[in-house]
């Protein structure tokens, strides 16, 4: 187990370097960001040169990348164009996005798995068909439509919630945005769980458990569900990274000042430091989430052993 984890951690190093290099190059290809800082006029050449020097943009790309990586290892992610250190931006943005992701994941787990179990056990019944239809609709409607619709209905028409999230972004404010963010994944979780449950219901070990005379709820939770959750856990694990980085649309609609907002602004202003910094952290989150998923397999299915 320990050796497996170490091997996995070592594998992260090339992935990490490759991902940062790619992002670094991509942002760089977009050209010189200083030109966008002076509005609809030419920056005066002396100030522009001075700014480029300050942000290290006057050196060749490979040198910029090496300096940047060197700084990253000492915990310095550079400075955004408005003079704020990127670490400061991260300190305000990540907690907000993490809260939003937690809300979304909770929705996926609670609603998604419950619906999946219910429909999986009652295959072909009206409740199954109903949920199937609903999930189809949810998957096919883009997030911004669901988001704007809920915002308009709940926020403006009925006045149940405030249409935008305050800068504090507390958990209760994030319930509706979290639901919107989770909606598509939630539908996938439902369908994944349903298929898995329906398949395993007919397997030998379930029949044995029933034959032993175990109570129904124990058969379902201990035997059926535990074994059926493996694909679902994989999905939710990879979804953590996707939700954190992919919340741009939801964050814009509900005015949440999280990672998506910072990334969006960083890209518009071609701020290499912000974009690379945030993506680097997202890559790390993705890698760690994947490792945790793999370790969870062993917990769910004792037959899986890591050496």
């Amino acid at each position: 187990m320990g050796r497996y984890v170490i091997r996995r951690l070592l594998q992260m190093i090339p992935v990490f370097i490759g991902a940062t290099l790619l992002i670094f190059l991509m942002v760089n290809v977009m050209g010189d960001p200083v030109a966008g800082l002076c509005g609809d006029r030419q920056c005066d050449p002396a100030t522009a040169a001075q700014l480029k020097k300050e942000f290290g943009l006057d050196r060749p790309v490979w040198q910029q990348y090496l300096t940047y990586m060197g700084n990253v290892f000492t915990g310095d992610f550079g400075t955004a164009f408005n003079g704020q250190p990127v670490t400061e931006l991260m300190a305000t943005a990540f907690p907000v996005t993490i809260r939003l992701t937690i809300v979304a994941i909770l929705f996926e787990i609670v609603i998604g798995i419950t619906l999946g179990v219910v429909t999986g056990l009652r295959r072909g019944r009206p409740v199954d068909t109903g949920v199937l239809l609903v999930t189809l609709v949810v998957i096919s409607v883009p997030t911004f439509v669901t988001g704007l619709l809920l915002q308009l209905l709940l926020g403006v028409e009925w006045g149940w919630i405030k249409p935008s999230v305050s800068s504090a972004a507390t958990f209760d404010e994030l319930i509706v945005p979290g639901l919107v963010l989770a909606s598509v994944s939630l539908a996938y979780v439902t369908r994944l769980t349903r298929t898995s449950i329906a398949e395993n219901k007919r397997s030998d070990y379930v029949r044995t458990a029933i034959a032993k005379g175990l109570p129904r709820h124990r058969v379902i939770t201990r035997h059926l569900l535990r074994n059926s959750l493996i694909p679902v856990v994989t999905f939710i694990g990879t979804d953590i990274g996707a939700l954190m980085g992919g919340a741009i649309v939801t964050e814009r609609i509900f005015n949440i000042h999280g990672v998506g907002f910072q990334l969006y602004q960083g890209i518009l202003r071609q701020n290499t430091q912000t974009v690379v910094g945030f993506v680097t952290v997202l890559v790390l989150v993705f890698l760690v989430a994947n490792l945790l998923v793999d370790l969870l397999y062993a917990v769910l299915d004792p037959r899986i052993r890591y050496a």
Partner: peptide
């Protein structure tokens, strides 16, 4: 002064009496 990421959201907030 509240920062809005999208002026559509600001407008919605105005309609809801939040701004």
């Amino acid at each position: 002064l509240k920062v809005y990421t999208d002026n559509n959201t600001a407008y919605t907030d105005l309609m809801a009496g939040n701004l």
